[in-house]
């Protein structure tokens, strides 16, 4: 559909010309970083895969999975991703920063909701004794879920910082390039979450 003949990098097509070359290089660099991060996640997945049987008599997938909460988390994170793309459209087609920040705030709130539900889940795990110290399986589960959760939390901090910068400096080229990178990061985390809810939770209880 959208013919983006002028967009030399992945991620949202921002349609700005200024500093295009510099933006192209930084965004490609960030994309490379994400690929390295992808390998990190993939290998933690693999380690998790090798440890699915290592419950050592402790709680297993049935006990640790609350599908309702997972479904809510999935919806919240997807919603956040979607809101972010709306924010980037706003940035691309309209200059107004408040309009864009509105969507960004929506994305952030949604992600915050995700984190809160995740935290509740984890607290519940602690309650039932499904702590990472209990077994290899739980260690891997906690490591994988928290690695993703920490990435999301980091993303939220980043969003806070960007909001401040947008308010201070407006939508300069520099800022646009940063928002583009943030978008890559944000959508990437949603992709990782698809892996987590499918392979860790759904496949766990199936």
């Amino acid at each position: 559909m959208s013919e983006q003949g002028t967009n030399p990098h992945p991620g949202m097509n921002l349609g700005y010309d200024g500093g295009e070359k510099a933006a192209e290089v930084t965004i490609f660099g960030f994309w490379t970083f994400l690929m390295s991060d992808l390998v990190t996640f993939g290998l933690v997945f693999a380690v998790f895969g090798t440890m699915t049987g290592a419950t050592a008599g402790g709680p297993g997938p049935e006990e640790v999975t609350d599908l309702r909460s997972i479904a809510i988390q999935t919806a919240l994170l997807l919603g956040s991703s979607f809101a972010f793309s709306w924010a980037s459209l706003s940035m691309k087609y309209h200059g107004g920063r408040l309009h864009m920040l509105g969507f960004l705030a929506l994305a952030a709130t949604s992600a915050l909701g995700f984190l809160i539900f995740e935290l509740i889940d984890l607290l519940h795990l602690v309650e039932i004794g499904a702590v990472p110290q209990r077994s290899g399986y739980l260690s891997a589960l906690w490591a994988l879920v928290c690695l993703h959760g920490l990435h999301v939390a980091g993303g939220l901090l980043w969003m806070g910082g960007m909001t401040l910068q947008i308010l201070l400096f407006g939508l300069t080229d520099q800022i646009k390039s940063r928002v583009t990178r943030m978008g890559l990061y944000w959508h990437f985390l949603d992709i990782v979450w698809v892996g987590i809810f499918s392979m860790v939770y759904l496949a766990g209880v199936a």
Partner: peptide
């Protein structure tokens, strides 16, 4: 944690 330990599934 128990990734590489001798006990509890490491």
């Amino acid at each position: 944690f128990h990734f590489f330990t001798n006990d509890l599934g490491g």
